[in-house]
Simulated scan of single mutants.
Amino acid sequence: MKSHELFHTLHQLSRHLTNTLNEALKPLGLYGSQWSVIYVLKTKGSLTQKELCDYLFVEAPPMTRTIQRLVKQGYVYQVTGKDKREKIIQLTDVALTLFPEWEKTVIDTNQTLLKHLPEASQEELFHLQKSWLQQLLSKEQII
Rank of each mutant, 00 (worst) to 15 (best):
E103P: 06
R69M: 11
E101T: 13
L70P: 13
K84D: 03
K82A: 00
Q78G: 06
L91H: 09
V76F: 04
L96T: 15
D83M: 11
K84H: 01
V106H: 15
V106T: 12
T66P: 12
K82S: 00
L98H: 11
I88V: 15
K84I: 09
P100V: 14
G81M: 06
A95R: 01
K104M: 07
Q90E: 11
T80C: 02
Q90A: 03
I89N: 11
V76Y: 02
K72M: 02
T105Q: 01
T92K: 12
T80Q: 09
E59K: 11
V106Y: 12
Q68N: 04
R65S: 13
Q73M: 12
V58H: 13
Q68A: 09
D93W: 04
Q90R: 15
E59Q: 08
D83E: 08
F99L: 15
F57D: 06
V58S: 14
K72E: 13
I67A: 12
V94I: 12
E101I: 12
I88G: 01
K104A: 06
D83S: 09
F57H: 13
L98D: 13
W102H: 04
M63V: 04
E59W: 04
T66A: 09
E103F: 03
Q90H: 14
E103V: 00
T80N: 05
K82Y: 00
T92N: 05
Q68W: 07
D83I: 07
T66R: 15
I107R: 10
E86Q: 08
L91V: 10
V94R: 14
L91I: 07
W102T: 13
R65W: 06
